[in-house]
């Protein structure tokens, strides 16, 4: 059992941080959903708010860490242009190699019709995923700012849930496309 440095970072970016984000999202959504009048005592509110702050905070931090590691560490390995203009370095390959980066591999079509994975999949993923930390941060700040007052404000609570789900959808597009692309053209 062995992982290269690049594979390790791909795992940290997609699996470790992505899983942390999903876990925090589930907790944050469940906590906010049930933050309604009449369901929790005053003592219960104080206890629950601490977990809510932690969940939303963890989600925002995980979202930032995911996009930063993805963009600044993993993505440069994906987009290296090492196969030449005619993708000669990819000839005969079934997977990316030292002469053919994942991007080169997808664009070369040497292993089937793969270029749309880059033109559509990667191009969408690399951009829209950055909406996730912006929405998660604002949602976290709203929860932190209003605190228990959210119990009395149904519309505001719904608004934070909309932002939370928006962040999640952006992360899902990024995560799902990333998983598919890494299946077709893994970083190694």
């Amino acid at each position: 059992m062995e992982l290269t440095s690049r594979e390790t970072w791909a795992v940290i970016h997609g699996l470790v941080l992505g899983t942390l984000y999903l876990l925090a999202f589930g907790g944050a959504l469940a906590g906010l959903w049930s933050l309604r009048p009449g369901l929790v005592t005053t003592a219960g509110i104080k206890e629950r708010m601490k977990r809510l702050y932690l969940g939303f905070g963890a989600m925002a931090v995980a979202a930032w860490a995911t996009v930063i590691t993805g963009t600044w560490i993993v993505y440069p390995w994906y987009r290296e242009k090492i196969a030449g203009k005619d993708f000669a370095g990819c000839t005969g390959l079934e997977l990316p190699s030292a002469t053919c980066s994942p991007r080169d591999f997808l664009l070369s079509n040497v292993s089937g019709d793969t270029e749309e994975w880059h033109h559509y999949g990667m191009e969408w993923k690399e951009h829209v995923a950055w909406a996730a930390p912006l929405l998660a941060t604002s949602a976290f700040l709203l929860v932190l700012y209003y605190g228990p007052r959210l119990i009395a404000r149904k519309w505001l609570r719904t608004t934070v849930i909309v932002m939370l789900v928006g962040s999640f959808l952006a992360a899902v597009v990024g995560g799902a496309l990333g998983a598919f692309i890494n299946k077709v053209a893994p970083i190694s």
Binding site: R149, I151, A152
Partner: peptide
């Protein structure tokens, strides 16, 4: 805002 009117459990929190 008068949050404690909608959610009486907030009244004791002195927000």
């Amino acid at each position: 805002h008068d949050d404690a009117q909608v959610a009486p459990e907030l009244a004791g929190m002195d927000l």
